[in-house]
Write a protein that binds this DNA or RNA. Structure first.
Length: 444
RNA sequence: GCCCCCAUGGUCUAGAGGCCCAGGACGCCGCCCUUUCAAGGCGGAGAUCGCGGGUUCGAAUCCCGCUGGGGGUACCA
């Protein structure tokens, strides 16, 4: 099996493209085949080196490695020209100056469902000669066989008047030359497939196996775009998702195993993936489920690994160890981490509501009592802190909450933080006492 | 307009004629645990399997129509 992922570098790699890449990769790895990367950069204006780098970067982050390429379509111009000449010489294509309005006029005369047929001219764009009878049948692993009646098809333009190739010619030739056996791509290419098949036929080539993946939609059912939140791989990374979680989630968007399990590590995905089981209808990208899944992956990561990921993500070196242990049960993305533990390092945040609710007279009394006990704790670790503060709870015959919350608000400024003992341990005795004192002074 | 594809709870899906008056997951609601928030555990609401016809002893599963959604229809990819 030889498959390819062939993005056009017109911007960041979107989630839909990422899933296409994933499915190609999974199919190749499952079958022990070869995964080829081809960059379709024939659209000169939009295909910039920066855009190419963005795509390579996204694939790297997703850890989808390819075996061959990247092949740049733009560098195959000579071969494309050669094939165009061959088709022209063989009578499979002809030159024509017919424009869009000519095609429309033709349909007005012959019927809307009648494909355009042009007259050969000396110059002009190159059009494929489509037969009037018969049908071109696409064999697709996901959709089965579909017969496209040739009468309905226009004589497709396969090269510009200047001789440069158009998509339907270039893909067909490039896939053929690369020995691609399975073309796995988005459904938006489905209707154009017969044109490519006709090119292949004219070249006397076999048709590859196709697998057209249903498109991905946003939560509102519309085409996925910026306003749906994280829409590109870069944005997913910036939002603090783990690549292994993204792979798992994306794999399940449009594909399901018989077991119907949800958390499936990549190695297991490779083992189970089958193109035949890909869903036919489009799926919606639901970030809530990704968040949940990401949390699961975060909690399965050893603390040392998670620490490394957080340090990379936050561009911070070292000193996060204890905080990671304290926070890992409470975060779903890497981005959730700092808002939770940041106040421990950066100082209390300013949450007026929290202060009002917990640092009233009763709260301050708790603080004063806690301060005394904490000043005397023999060892500054969670065990001793636990013991000491429980004593305060008993002495005051208060609910634990009414002792812990004022302390929390005093040291981090708000009602949410890691466990109070872990928080204090990370703070250290001196800083804890300083913050308690500050709270007592400021709220008087 | 024309051509093509698709259709299971809000979302992702399992289901390939009787095992299904439809199972799992996310989300939502409640309870438990509990120092906050989470995590975790338990439970619940939520689908006449888009609608209407067939075929069959029997249909989510097969056929037809309709409706809805999507894609294509560029000298873009």
């Amino acid at each position: 099996m030889r498959v390819r992922f062939a993005p056009s570098p017109t911007g960041a790699l979107h989630i839909g493209g990422a899933r296409t890449a994933l499915y190609n990769w999974l199919a190749a790895r499952h079958a022990g085949g070869t995964f080829v990367l081809r960059i379709e950069d024939t659209d000169r204006e939009r295909s910039t080196p920066e855009n190419v780098e963005q795509i390579l970067d996204a694939l790297r982050w997703l850890e989808l490695d390819y075996d061959e390429g990247p092949i740049f379509q733009s560098q195959r111009a000579d071969r494309h020209r050669e094939v165009i000449e061959q088709l022209l010489a063989g009578g499979h294509a002809y030159r024509s100056n017919a424009a869009a309005e000519d095609v429309r006029a033709y349909k007005d005369r012959h019927g809307a469902d009648r494909g355009f047929r042009g007259e050969p001219e000396e110059t002009g764009a190159v059009r494929l000669r489509v037969p009037d009878d018969g049908a071109t049948v696409v064999r697709d692993l996901i959709r089965g066989e579909t017969a496209f009646q040739n009468v309905h098809m226009d004589d497709a333009v396969i090269a510009r008047a200047d001789g440069t190739p158009l998509y339907n010619l270039a893909v067909a030739v490039d896939d053929l030359d690369a020995g691609i056996t399975h073309v796995i791509r988005g459904d938006d290419h489905y209707s154009n497939t017969p044109k490519q098949l006709l090119v292949l036929q004219a070249l006397g080539a076999e048709q590859p196996v196709y697998a057209h993946l249903p498109l991905l939609h946003g939560p509102d059912g519309k085409k996925l775009s910026k306003r749906h939140g994280a829409a590109s791989v870069q944005e997913l990374r910036d939002a603090g998702y783990l690549p292994e979680a993204v792979r798992n989630y994306l794999a399940l968007l449009g594909w399901g195993d018989v077991d119907d399990e949800t958390i499936i590590p990549t190695a297991e995905l490779v083992k189970r993936f089958e193109l035949e089981r890909v869903q036919k209808n489009p799926a919606r990208f639901d970030e809530k489920k990704l968040r949940w899944m990401n949390g699961r992956y975060i909690r399965e990561l050893p603390v040392a690994d998670l620490t490394q990921r957080l340090e990379d993500y936050l561009h911070r070196d070292g000193k996060l160890g204890g905080a990671v242990f304290a926070a890992r049960e409470k975060i779903q993305t890497l981005a959730d981490f700092w808002p939770l533990v940041g106040p421990i390092y950066d100082g209390p945040v300013d949450d007026a509501r929290a202060r009002e609710q917990w640092l009233d007279e009763a709260g301050r009394a708790v603080l004063a009592a806690a301060r005394e006990v904490l000043a005397e704790v023999p060892e500054w670790d969670t065990g001793h802190l636990d013991e000491a503060l429980r004593r305060v709870v008993e002495q005051r015959s208060a609910k634990p909450k009414h002792v812990f919350q004022p302390i929390r608000v005093a040291v981090v400024g708000t009602t949410v933080s890691p466990g109070i003992f872990e928080t204090l341990e990370l703070l250290g005795r001196d800083e804890t006492l300083r913050r308690l004192d500050a709270a007592l002074v400021n709220t008087r």
